[in-house]
């Protein structure tokens, strides 16, 4: 690793104000927003800023000089630069008033002047778009997939855990090749998640209908439930009704951003036996004579 003084281009006995002015000079030359098309400047700027974080602070500089902290220091907080928003079309309120309607002007410019960073004209390769249908379980748990391309080659796609229907994955540099030494474009893969016969997704939660028998509904009981990661036994409380929800905490889809899992919600559904036998009929007739109730009272 380079010495921090070398990175800022100052001598070891430079004063704090020398260091500050060296940093200012480099920042003006290298700040990514002042060099929107030069990724090398951005890498250099990060290096210079990290060096200034230590040398610009007298205490940290003394510690560095004594070898108590090394050049790696602590990672700088990563911020996005303005150019990323401007390039992505997210800063249209700042669009220049200058008119570029005269395309002829731009063509003239393109043909006469240098284009690429090294002075030669380059064109970045085009972006390509693909669709990829994945099974519900693969979307919930993540998977490695391969897309076969028309030209016979294949593209490996890592489907991230918890990917959502319609989400777009970007594979940098996997688009069409650039021309004249320009970089390749990117591949954008739109994910379609196939339906599951049992499960549905709501954000990080898994929703399923859980059929229970009439006796389980009245008396309660333990039932086996399928989850993303195998079967678990859950308790149906005594007196459960259709529509009530059993929440299995942490049995949903892992949210990569928050590092937590969603829940599985089982919506109870009372299912009568296929055949109403004389016993059940007798039981109900008997029960109804003095326990009749009206579940539609509130509607």
């Amino acid at each position: 690793m380079k010495n921090l003084y070398e990175i800022l281009g100052v001598s070891k006995d430079a004063s704090q104000s020398d260091i500050k002015s060296a940093y200012r000079k480099l920042a003006k030359a290298l700040h990514p927003d002042l060099n929107p098309s030069d990724p090398k400047a951005e890498a250099r700027f990060k290096e210079v800023s990290a060096a200034f974080d230590i040398l610009g602070d007298q205490d940290k500089r003394a510690k560095y000089d004594r070898g108590e902290i090394d050049a790696s220091g602590q990672e700088r907080k990563q911020h996005d630069y303005y150019k990323q928003h401007a390039d992505a079309g997210g800063a249209q309120q700042y669009g220049s008033d200058a008119s570029f309607e005269d395309l002829g002007d731009i063509f003239a410019e393109m043909f006469r002047r240098e284009g690429g960073a090294d002075g030669s004209f380059q064109i970045r390769g085009g972006d390509v778009r693909y669709h990829l249908a994945v099974d519900f379980m693969d979307a919930a748990k993540g998977a490695a997939k391969r897309i076969s391309l028309p030209d016979g080659s294949a593209l490996n796609v890592k489907v991230p855990v918890g990917v959502k229907d319609g989400q777009i994955i970007r594979l940098r540099g996997k688009g069409r090749p650039g021309r004249g030494g320009g970089p390749s474009g990117d591949a954008y893969i739109e994910i379609a998640v196939r339906e599951h016969k049992m499960f549905r997704r709501e954000q990080d939660d898994i929703i399923m209908d859980l059929p229970i028998s009439i006796d389980e509904a009245v008396l309660g009981g333990k039932v086996e439930v399928q989850t993303l990661n195998g079967r678990v036994r859950v308790t149906v409380p005594k007196g459960s009704s259709t529509g009530q929800i059993l929440r299995l905490k942490g049995k949903g889809v892992k949210n990569l951003k928050r590092g937590q899992r969603g829940d599985q919600k089982c919506i109870l559904k009372i299912i009568l036996p296929d055949l109403i036998d004389p016993d059940l009929e007798a039981l109900m007739t008997n029960w109804r004579t003095d326990h009749a109730y009206n579940p539609r009272e509130s509607i």
Partner: peptide, 24 residues
């Protein structure tokens, strides 16, 4: 500075359109 930065970004967006048209 802001005016120049904004002009550069407008130019970049025009160039991108052009490059995309060429690629397409």
């Amino acid at each position: 500075i802001l005016s120049l930065i904004d002009q550069v970004h407008s130019m970049r967006s025009q160039m991108r359109c052009l490059a995309e048209a060429i690629n397409a």
